[in-house]
């Protein structure tokens, strides 16, 4: 997972897609009928399909996370951990650091811009492309997807040229906005906007493809009914399509909040040292040698992501489609 990405490359997982794209069918079909009668220990196809994901998640997600939790309570002497000797001192060190609040403020300002812009932008593009499906829409979807094919850091380096009035193909736009050189464009005050632009072009294509898929999954009967009732294109997009793809929107918000909180590559490559909490965590580990404080900051980001996910799931009507369908 690329930490600095505005939109993560995670695709919605299968249960979710099934739930939404087949609104007219009873939900959770696999859990009923024959499957249900089998013994709980028998290996289901679904388990096999999930296995690679689970193994990788345990190896690269759960275990490192648990390890971070352990070393966040370890004291580091000579760069070596002494387990469970630190108490909460690493948390105190990390959260009272003079850069900590600034970095939290920075990341909040970035989230405040990037999440709404990302969600609204992606929704707008998807609904617009879905007005008239066909070759043109497919071509555009592919076009939007291409920047996402670049690796994160390469994309940031490319962005350097894009943001420099003298070298950018959009230099005339930047000049028109009053920017004379790249230093003026890449001032820290502009970071949230710059990273939003960068992230949008890097990640929007992937989400457009997902949303477009969700829109395609809406039953044609529902759409026909809407037209019969006199819905125009705008109304059907707003009153019919949008509510039906709400779980996808919630899902996108969860993943982008989780991804964006961990911003690292962009400020690092732009030359700002302690701009985001993730960078501060890195500094604790590799400048100061305090892996414990570094882990404390990483865990804070896990916590933020989990809280955000919980709130969104609870209050966004993430499961509304379940309710309506059953």
């Amino acid at each position: 997972m690329w930490g600095g990405r505005l939109y993560t490359n995670n695709r919605p997982l299968q249960p979710n897609a099934v739930t939404v794209s087949k609104l007219d069918q009873p939900l959770s079909t696999p859990l009923t009928g024959a499957y249900r009668k089998r013994s709980g220990l028998s290996l289901r196809a679904a388990h096999l399909f999930l296995l690679p994901y689970v193994i990788l998640m345990v190896l690269f997600g759960i275990l490192p996370g648990a390890y971070a939790l352990v070393i966040s309570f370890a004291k580091f002497v000579g760069g070596r951990p002494q387990y469970f000797l630190a108490g909460i001192s690493n948390y105190v060190t990390a959260y009272s650091d003079f850069r900590f609040l600034t970095s939290i403020g920075n990341i909040l300002s970035f989230l405040l811009i990037s999440i709404p812009v990302g969600v609204v932008g992606v929704l707008f593009i998807s609904l617009w492309l879905h007005v008239k499906p066909g070759r043109v829409a497919t071509a555009f979807r592919t076009l939007f997807f291409i920047p996402g094919a670049f690796a994160g850091p390469a994309l940031v380096l490319l962005a350097f040229f894009m943001f420099a009035p003298t070298t950018s193909p959009f230099g005339f736009l930047l000049s028109a906005m009053g920017f004379q050189n790249s230093a003026e464009v890449t001032l820290k005050d502009n970071y949230p906007v710059l990273f939003t632009v960068l992230g949008f072009f890097a990640g929007a294509g992937g989400w457009v493809a997902i949303f477009y898929g969700a829109l395609d999954g809406i039953s044609s009967e529902v759409m026909e009914a809407a037209i019969m009732d006199g819905c125009n294109k705008l109304e059907s997009a707003y009153y019919v399509k949008l509510p039906l793809i709400r779980p996808y929107i919630a899902y996108m918000v969860i993943l982008t909040v989780a991804g964006n909180v961990q911003l690292f590559a962009e400020p690092q490559l732009f030359g700002a040292k302690y701009w985001s909490p993730n960078q501060l965590g890195y500094a604790f580990a590799f400048e100061i040698g305090n892996f414990g404080a570094s882990a404390a900051i990483s865990l804070l980001m896990v916590f933020v992501g989990l809280i955000a996910a919980t709130i969104i799931i609870k209050f966004s009507g993430f499961y509304q489609t379940d309710a309506t369908a059953s």
Binding site: L255, G259, F264, A295
Partner: peptide, 20 residues
Amino acid sequence: GTAVFAVAMTMAACAAPTAP
């Protein structure tokens, strides 16, 4: 579970630099 797992994985994977 899926959503929380996805977040946890995203987070934990990126917390990796702290865990040499």
